[in-house]
Design a protein around this nucleic acid. Structure first.
Lengths: 256, 256
DNA sequence: CAGGTTTGTTGATCCAGATCAATACAAACG
DNA sequence: CGTTTGTATTGATCTGGATCAACAAACCTG
């Protein structure tokens, strides 16, 4: 997956999209060769970012939109001193930085949970490109739309679901997203702590731990610290109410 | 506020922005005369919509972006049969319909809570306009950004706040929004039921009712059914944790 | 305006999940 | 290799808000 030794005199960015195994989920989807070429010209690839080294903090002026290449990023809002509300975990091929378009500065913070690389799209150049290339503009709109529907699903989770449903939803969301990216949907390592999971799902750490144990007792999963194996996918799906994360809540349209 | 008797041979839409008392919060903000003219050309003004007559339902193909002119609209997702999750209440000068940009169909439903009029911006024509006029595009991006930061504030509310904090936050949010629009910030009528408030805030109806009563006992507010008077604004603000709704969580930027 | 329906209030009880507390375990380090 | 430090599990207890239940007040609608 490390492509730096190819064609070292091409710009690094130029290599990144065309050979990137994530490109089908990422920005390039639906762009033709010319459009892609122009998009590639504005992308920077970040060096490897260590765990804990913030991409941005709350109040920072917005510079760029980011796509995760490898690793994972936690997006959160600091609340009380020493407290935070986790808003999401961003996996490879997913985006962050849409917050703060309104105020021109970030309204949340983003920090890698493990060694992470990202692609960076400077906002000013991206905006020009959006105005020049409708296809890019539409693609960005789609990504923003995904952000909004994702938030809505989270509101349903926090407003309505029980602790068990929340954790089942969370695990299945990860499973689906890993699968889409060519990783195993059945077993994976969590890059976030129990504390962070609980915070994200509106639960106490102890509750997360207990429900992991319960799921294990019931034979749904097998957990060892951060390593999770899903043993009974269907049973787990049954636990989730409607609207599993990251799936469209398709519904028969009622006649008006 | 009803302007229909002015200049009856101008197009209704042309009248609507230039004389509309909401225009400073609405789309036209920051547009010059030429841009405004073009924007006005694509706007339709809806007839008066009665309470309960949906603007759109889940699964409907997306047609338009809507701005509320008068009245109020509930946005919600149907969950279990007979159940719903309220995502927001849209007041005059505010927008709805950003959901479903991703999937090209709506992922939630919108219904007036009272007699309501809206301005309708057909997506296809709006998109063309966005590509032609960067200023309009930027304005739309800002509105979408507001949608996202608003959702984030809701996630904090549902993830962290107590019932009292939730209701105080809700009342102050309405107060601020009414004030911005030239209405009283101290007293107003709620267009939504206790049930809908509870659903929105992740609380049972009974809890909402009880906390209204408690706030009244403590002299913070006076409530009679849907009519609310805020008696001690400062006290109410103290009850809200950080991040009151609809205010930017401005924070001193930490050095990196 | 009687009778039904929807909406809101208030009281009594219950429970899911928080909080408190103690222990276990793993990685990090001198 | 013991010690420290952060992270995870497990048990015991507590509580905010849900749920259940009864009633009251407004608003239909014929």
């Amino acid at each position: 997956m490390i492509l730096q030794h190819y064609a070292p005199n091409l710009s690094r960015a130029a290599v990144s999209c065309k050979n990137c195994c994530l490109s089908e989920f990422c920005l390039p989807t639906g762009l033709n060769a010319t459009e892609l070429e122009q998009l590639i010209n504005i992308i920077h690839r970040s060096p490897s970012l260590p765990r804990g080294k913030h991409l941005f903090k709350i109040g920072d002026p917005i510079q760029s939109l980011y796509a995760v290449r490898s690793g994972s990023v936690k997006v959160y809002v600091p609340t009380e001193p020493g407290e935070e509300q986790v808003l999401g975990f961003i996996l490879p091929g997913e985006f962050l930085g849409f917050d703060g378009i309104e105020a021109q500065h970030h309204t949340c913070a983003a920090v890698p949970l493990e060694t992470t690389t990202v692609c960076e799209l400077p906002y000013d150049r991206l905006e020009e490109l959006c105005h020049a290339l409708p296809a890019v503009d539409s693609r960005i709109h789609k990504l923003i739309g995904k952000e909004i529907t994702g938030d809505h699903e989270m509101l349903i989770l926090l407003g309505k679901k029980t602790a068990e449903e929340r954790l089942a939803t969370f695990l299945l969301s990860l499973s689906v997203r890993f699968k889409q990216r060519g990783f195993s949907e059945r077993d994976f390592n969590l890059s976030m702590s129990r504390h962070e999971i609980g915070n994200y799902l509106g639960l106490a750490v102890e509750t997360v731990s207990r429900i992991f144990a319960r799921f294990q007792d019931e034979g749904l999963i097998s957990v060892n610290r951060r390593y999770v194996e899903i043993l009974a996918m269907d049973e787990l799906k049954k636990l989730v109410g409607d609207c599993p994360m990251d799936e469209t809540c398709a519904r028969v349209r009622e006649a008006p």
